[in-house]
Nucleic acid binder design. Structure first.
Lengths: 248, 248
DNA sequence: CAGTGGTCTAGACCACTCC
DNA sequence: GAGTGGTCTAGACCACTGC
């Protein structure tokens, strides 16, 4: 088809960078939906009229970006979305990790409404203060105990269907919900970890006392295109929190 | 010289993996000390009798491992050691970050002695409980205020010179000290972040009150060969702590 | 078995750094 | 200009997956 060379990105970039952009464009356009298989590397190389090695380098970069996955002998696939169940990996709660079973915590939504974005959320979403946004307040419940409190801000335009559909159309995981209802796929995120104490209002929702120490995770999540599309502040018991990192 | 193919690693591995091991061996042997420049990739390829592309892939892996650094137009270099001043990046203190100047905190050593390793430290150092170890207790001081409390465990054998030389031979940074006195180069580390409260003894050293909330960083540091050679628990004011991560 | 990605070769030419 | 790493080519052959 005419997809090869249709929209060429910056020609000063190395060929494999341009190819990587082209691949990303075809994923974001919906031509290759998440989970689907791409043509073989030889076919792609032929289509774009480059050597196999060059296409392989482009594919490798796309894998590093988190856009694609390659499986020897099977093929190259578009990565499915980021799991927000991942957040729970950071907390050690009595119930879950017993035998390595991944119990998905239940999600209880307390608020879902349109609001004008305050400064902090607007900054992280690349919008102006006061721009239309959607606010979600939810707790994540494990063994009938609220374990995590999450405040979430979204840009109005891309997510307005969440409001029209309402609370009942939410699953326990938000990212699949974004995908199904709003066609937004989250691929990566940036997190900031800090420490704080619970406000009175927040404490009530977590069934703890005000001033209790909590770990505070501020997350900005990005779509396939690289736009910030979600800002989230999560709070959970500080003593249950742990986080692992490799540094070099 | 006879270094090409001298000690061949597992022949079932791809050639570039074997090459990567060979390069690492030559770095750890001291043939190429930290900061020094390697022969050009063409020379290396010729020496090992492989194609340029194969050697390049080996070099790329070694860069990913954190062993080497490559600079376009200049050459390939052995990475210098990890900076343990890095720990301070996680804490926002009034004094330092004002204009992006990196003030190295002063190190005050309170204890330096041989001890039998307790379970936790022994586990992280791949040694048996009760094995001979060295214990260091120090605070790191910024603008005359103790900001960080660090407990450090080391295996006795590799680090015994620290004991004979004594406290006075320590610099403000430990990793250069390990390098100079014990010929141990730290290249990477694994960290676990959590929160806790100060014990009475620890509180006194940090000039805070017992029970104050602190961020607790447990770090295992590895030598060039990949052996764990240091286990460290650092504690600092929880409210000053912040940490950034990219996730995919 | 056919089809996929993974490894490897032996070249050419470009871009950067430093003298 | 000499020397370095970075990009790209056009092939060959190997290793894994699934029918």
């Amino acid at each position: 088809m005419g997809s090869a060379g249709s929209v060429m990105s910056d020609l000063r970039l190395p060929r494999y960078e341009q190819l990587r952009d082209a691949l990303r464009a075809r994923v974001t356009s919906g031509e290759w939906p998440p989970g689907s298989m791409l043509p073989s590397e030889t076919d792609l190389a032929r289509e774009y009229k480059v050597a196999l090695g060059t296409m392989r380098q482009a594919l490798s970069r796309a894998v590093e970006d988190g856009l694609l996955e390659r499986v020897h002998g099977k093929g190259t696939f578009v990565r499915s979305e980021l799991q927000d169940a991942l957040m729970f990996r950071f907390f050690r709660f009595r119930d879950s990790d017993a035998e390595g079973k991944v119990t998905i915590p239940r999600s209880v939504i307390h608020e879902l409404r349109e609001i004008p974005l305050e400064q902090e959320a607007a900054d992280h979403l690349n919008l102006k203060k006061g721009a239309r946004g959607i606010f979600i307040l939810r707790t994540r419940v494990l063994a009938d105990m609220p374990a995590l409190l999450e405040k979430i801000w979204l840009p109005y335009q891309a997510f307005k269907r969440l409001l029209t559909n309402g609370k009942d159309h939410f699953g326990d995981l938000l990212y699949p919900t974004y995908h199904k209802q709003c066609n937004v796929v989250i691929t990566h995120a940036r997190e900031n970890i800090g420490f704080g104490t619970l406000s009175h209002a927040d404490a009530r929702l977590l069934k703890k006392s005000a001033g209790s120490p909590v770990a505070v995770i501020r997350r900005t999540a990005f779509s396939l295109i690289g736009d910030p599309v979600e800002y989230r502040i999560s709070q959970g018991d500080a003593l249950s929190f742990h986080y692992n990192v490799e540094i070099k």
